[in-house]
Amino acid sequence: DHDVVPEDKFQETLHLKEKEGCPQAFHALLSWLLTQDSTAILDFWRVLFKDYNLERYGRLQPILDSFPKDVDLSQPRKGRKPPAVPKALVPPPRLPTKRKASEEARAAAPAALTPRGTASPGSQLKAKPPKKPESSAEQQRLPLGNGIQTMSASVQRAVAMSSGDVPGARGAVEGILIQQVFESGGSKKCIQVGGEFYTPSKFEDSGSGKNKARSSSGPKPLVRAKGAQGAAPGGGEARLGQQGSVPAPLALPSDPQLHQKNEDECAVCRDGGELICCDGCPRAFHLACLSPPLREIPSGTWRCSSCLQATVQEVQPRAEEPRPQEPPVETPLPPGLRSAGEEVRGPPGEPLAGMDTTLVYKHLPAPPSAAPLPGLDSSALHPLLCVGPEGQQNLAPGARCGVCGDGTDVLRCTHCAAAFHWRCHFPAGTSRPGTGLRCRSCSGDVTPAPVEGVLAPSPARLAPGPAKDDTASHEPALHRDDLESLLSEHTFDGILQWAIQSMARPAAPFPS
């Protein structure tokens, strides 16, 4: 592969990997390779389809078979030569091979799209000592099968071997295949498990690692696999990028399955594409389908809103127990993405979901129960707010008499603000006073009005108090039968009158 990737590009890729991570280095090298001529790309395919690569990765054979028959990708048995050289000459001794072996032994695996480039050397060096003999053996194999790289107009793939297949390693990572398949204008990513390549439709969760975000852009890794992070704060999961590491605690105790298979379609829109997988259930989501939507993949363990709600429900009964003089119970939860139609709101002032922060849900004790107040519409209280300059209440639009249902020339009671006709409430011909108009209920007259088809109010509507207090003497005590009587009149003013009279009014101040 030294004929494909020059030394300066190799060093530039290593520097970019240390600065921005393996995914960015892979993407940059792939983009550079696509700008080369067809001879360089053909050399790339020839390096990929060597015999030892085909033996190690069985899924490469179907890719090789898909090439046109007129494309010669065979390799000479006596060494490598550029395709432009007409004579089959043995190339001179390859010093770059020693360079590659020494550099890969030092860096474990470079971040390139060629056999030198995919593992994360920093994480491997940190986690190597417990498994040094086995990992050293794996390093000797890295130059042979560490990076199976493929690129063409139909298929483009980048393979990364790992030393996680050490025997006896619980939940060992089998390997990473960062794979971009450009077929019919689409893009897919796969993962390699035990020599087999699994596409998103049959993606397997190998051991402790999972394909957290099938994305090839942005600074985030394709698999949430930063070796420096180790395990999740809650004892979460091992990262795919942690090559040759000792077994780590796999999943939280509440995880239903340690080796679950995540779905390959969004649980909201039932469509495929780039998904984020939940650590607590097999569901996966688009970032845009979450509520609120996320802009980037959160670091650490992530769970959907259903799993978060289940966790909150487990903690909430203990938080609601009476604990005198104790601060509110704080339950730190990872930043969760909410699927459509589901929402768990945190306290005000918290950062938005999706940031690399930890939301704190506070379970406050329930407030003391209070008697429910009568629910009145805002339009129902409008007549009470229509007060004239002299303190006389004006008529609201649409006000109707509670007896006849007519809204023409209605009066407004100064005591309960109900609309009424003087002739309907006082049919006996009582003279109307000039000021202080009161309806039949507030004036103490319980004589029913002779209106055909309208039920008369119940005599129990009024329960006047002592006459010594004029204001308190007109406080009506309405009961269920009074409400039914008012409802039978089918008037809004009657219902409003009952609601206003049912509310307690402050006692009249004593004259000074």
Rank of each mutant, 00 (worst) to 15 (best):
P247V: 13
P249Q: 09
A251N: 07
L252R: 10
P253I: 10
D255A: 13
P256T: 14
K261T: 07
D264E: 08
A267D: 13
R270L: 12
D271G: 05
C277A: 07
C278N: 15
D279I: 06
G280I: 09
G280H: 15
C281D: 09
P282R: 09
H286K: 12
L287A: 13
P292L: 12
P298F: 05
G300E: 08
S305H: 13
S306D: 08
Q309T: 05
T311I: 07
T311M: 14
T311A: 08
V312F: 14
E314A: 10
A319R: 09
E321N: 07
E326I: 12
V329R: 12
E330W: 15
E330A: 11
P332R: 13
L333I: 08
L333Q: 08
A340E: 13
G341P: 11
R345T: 10
M355V: 15
L359M: 06
V360A: 10
K362A: 07
S369Q: 05
A371W: 12
S378W: 14
L381E: 11
L381H: 08
L384T: 09
Q392M: 09
Q393Y: 15
L395A: 11
L395T: 07
A396P: 05
A399R: 10
C404E: 04
D406V: 08
D409T: 03
V410I: 09
V410F: 05
L411K: 08
L411T: 04
L411V: 12
L411H: 12
C413W: 01
T414Q: 07
H415A: 06
F420D: 03
C424F: 03
C424G: 02
H425Y: 08
P427D: 02
G429S: 10
T430S: 10
T430P: 12
T430A: 05
G436I: 09
G436H: 13
S441T: 03
C442Q: 05
C442T: 02
C442A: 02
D445A: 07
T447P: 11
G453R: 09
L455E: 02
A456G: 09
P457R: 11
P459V: 11
S473N: 06
H474I: 13
H474Y: 12
H479W: 11
D481E: 09
L483Y: 10
L486A: 06
L487E: 02
G494L: 02
G494H: 04
I495W: 10
L496P: 00
L496D: 00
I500E: 00
A507F: 04
P509I: 11
